[in-house]
Amino acid sequence: MIQNLFNTDESNRQRGQVGIGTLIVFIAMVLVAAIAAGVLINTAGFLQTQAQDTGTESTSQVADNLKVITEVGNVSQAEDTIGQVRLGVQPAAGAGDVNLAKLTLQYVSDDNFANLVVGLDNTSFNSGTDTAQWS
Rank of each mutant, 00 (worst) to 15 (best):
T104W: 02
N7M: 04
A36Q: 02
T49M: 13
L100G: 11
T104K: 11
N4H: 14
F6C: 05
A132W: 08
G19E: 08
A93D: 13
A101K: 15
A78W: 06
T22Q: 14
N126W: 00
A36Y: 02
D111R: 10
V108C: 03
G21D: 12
S60F: 09
T56R: 14
T81I: 11
M29Y: 09
N65F: 13
L66K: 01
D9S: 05
I82H: 02
N99G: 06
N112M: 08
D130I: 10
N115Q: 12
T129K: 06
G38A: 12
T49Q: 15
G88A: 07
T22I: 12
N122D: 14
N4Q: 15
N7K: 13
G55S: 10
A114M: 04
F46M: 03
E57M: 13
T131K: 13
N115W: 10
S76M: 09
Y107I: 14
T70V: 01
G94L: 10
S127G: 08
A37C: 03
I82Q: 02
Q84V: 14
I41E: 08
V62N: 07
I27Q: 07
A101R: 15
M1L: 07
V118A: 07
N112I: 04
T129F: 00
T22V: 12
R13W: 00
P91L: 07
G45F: 01
V32W: 02
L66G: 01
A92K: 04
G16S: 13
T56H: 12
D64T: 05
N112K: 13
A95D: 00
E57K: 15
I20P: 01
V98E: 05
L105Y: 11
L103M: 09
Q52I: 13
Q52K: 08
Q17G: 00
Q77H: 04
N122R: 15
V75Q: 09
D121K: 15
V32T: 10
L116V: 15
